[in-house]
Design a protein around this nucleic acid. Sequence first.
DNA 1: TTGAAATATCGTGATGTCACGATATGTTGG
DNA 2: CCAACATATCGTGACATCACGATATTTCAA
Lengths: 105, 105
Amino acid sequence: MTTRKQKRPAGSPQAFAEAAECLRILAHPVRLRMVQLLLHGRYTVGELAEDAGVADNVASEHLRLMQRCGFFTSERQGRRVYYEVAEPHLAQIMGCVESRFLAGR
Amino acid sequence: MTTRKQKRPAGSPQAFAEAAECLRILAHPVRLRMVQLLLHGRYTVGELAEDAGVADNVASEHLRLMQRCGFFTSERQGRRVYYEVAEPHLAQIMGCVESRFLAGR
DNA sequence: TTGAAATATCGTGATGTCACGATATGTTGG
DNA sequence: CCAACATATCGTGACATCACGATATTTCAA
């Protein structure tokens, strides 16, 4: 039996720190929109930038952030770079966010 | 028929901004821990502070932040102030976070 | 090979977040 | 009323985030 004084929900401090960091990456309007779009297919930096209404370099920086924490992978095809979702749990979390904030009800 | 050039996932820019702001509030290790604990019952500022390992005033500030965006409500009982969950979707989102980061597997 | 397109990187200034200590407010018991 | 307890608020300095412009890198096409 593990050492504990009371019954408490699980989670090491380290796990909470990691979870918080990923949520912080997600917590940006442009990045949220990019996640939502990429959950429906592959898109290039330019396409994502235009859809989100930001400059190409800004879009590139947001995508790099999300790639670094494992959200996306990227693949070069000619001049274009296609991004796509790599983290399966993104669909679940985005589903929660949509049902709370983006639901057409 | 509404005016649109292509089929795209739903969500006004304003809705994404609101969602991002709430996620940003959630994206902190101490606040995540507080949410998890409060999803299992009512707790005072002091109890939450001790559990999270932070000073009372720091806990109070985190709780005030989360109360302002509708996560919690508070009720005074004598010297103590009890906080409890007010936003029903917190359980869903926390469930997603737990299954990805805090799962005991 | 040269220029243009698509993406990436870097420096910078403005703004926001955070923990901490100090202090204020409210509450109970004596 | 007074002292201790529980919570809240405020000021401050360290640090992070963000968008922007400038520049670099990669690739294609002529």
